[in-house]
Design a protein around this nucleic acid. Sequence first.
DNA 1: AAAAGACATGAACGGATCTTGAAAATGCTC
DNA 2: GAGCATTTTCAAGATCCGTTCATGTCTTTT
Lengths: 235, 235
Amino acid sequence: MDHQPYILVVDDEERIRRLVRMYLERSGFRVDEAEDGNEALQMALAKPYSLLILDLMLPGLDGRDVCNQVRQSSNVPIIMLTAAGDETQRIHGFELGADDYVVKPFSPRELVMRVKALLKRSGEPEMQKPDLQQMLSFRDLAIHLDARRVEVAGQEISLTPKEFDLLVYMAQRPDKVFSREELLRDVWNYQFYGDQRTVDTHIKRLREKLGQASERVSLYIGTVWGVGYKFEVNP
Amino acid sequence: MDHQPYILVVDDEERIRRLVRMYLERSGFRVDEAEDGNEALQMALAKPYSLLILDLMLPGLDGRDVCNQVRQSSNVPIIMLTAAGDETQRIHGFELGADDYVVKPFSPRELVMRVKALLKRSGEPEMQKPDLQQMLSFRDLAIHLDARRVEVAGQEISLTPKEFDLLVYMAQRPDKVFSREELLRDVWNYQFYGDQRTVDTHIKRLREKLGQASERVSLYIGTVWGVGYKFEVNP
DNA sequence: AAAAGACATGAACGGATCTTGAAAATGCTC
DNA sequence: GAGCATTTTCAAGATCCGTTCATGTCTTTT
């Protein structure tokens, strides 16, 4: 466990830091936090982090400053968090010197995916082992994670992005019951204020598409009345 | 015992404070109480609590204010209590800066569950021990908590939400006798004004379902005349 | 043994929750 | 911007569950 990548998360909002930490640790990373630019810079120079996650807007030294300063002496991969409103930042996300950027509000799942991708790209040894989890398969359902392709009974079905994310999220823990709240937080993003019935609609479409090829509806996604939904292989 | 997490409970209703304290202490936590926002703020800043439980509606400084002020200098996890009316459907509760929220009236069971989950997420050392309790099993009865699935003699039986909650609650302390009042408060919520006989009906159905697979009725749930019910493994 | 109290049972109403389809809103591509 | 794909909202209809109540059964008390 001593070889797990160390990641520094920099954001002035405690809530965000903790959310990100939670998801990173759940994926096996070790995490440090900093809440302003000066602290971040100090820490980034003191320890050989495998990756930095930097909020763009920070009190004092902002994310861009930290990025530039760190870049003077290190080429550690950097992911920048940018606010949704600022179109300019979004378009020029890469020009800030970051290796990737994620727009707030983000879904925690997506951030973790990008962290992994970036670490792999940058040659992090721990990430070089081929990902055994590039495919999930159950009975006649196959989910290719990299290609974002799903096959039922050997026949490809086309899912929208959200449908795919939802399916993968649930399929990674078969049989566990997920509440709508849980799904909205993890698959959508950490501050989705919408209608919980939105989940129902996506579940409906997933069932249609999963069923259309195997001629049996609701084969994989079960309803747990009063609680939520679950992915199940043995109905 | 000096390492048990310390929790500050803030609510203007004494009844609620006492209820929450009782359940937290029963789960091994230490508890302090505050009855208004100013007192809460003072205490929260003076002592390094592991977690805060904040009512949203408070005289003077309300829960949101306290939350914001505390956040200036501390990253203690916060659970917000919100009333059912407060357009809570929409407000995901997290908007308030809290890490989780519970809608009143709540069942004490649920609150304690969320407290534990949040402490674990936020890295409380005492909570880090892996949770072995994802399944309860007795003789030929198996209860899978995540999947909310129950098997009797290897055969799955389907329970309604309330039936499942009731069973799990009782099965977590075999042989303890629960009064109807106790069950209504914990499995339902703390202000259920209905008929106590409601419990009887649920017990009846549970017995049916537990028995139908093992051919012997009342195998697991016993009646304690004049007092209530208990879950028992050795009848 | 009878009466009173407590529990068990079954049926039924009302309400909560889910499904579904379609329309509105949003986002994306050209 | 126009047009298409995707996501979200909404409401009607279907389904399932929780609660109540009436009646029957059992336990305790006198």
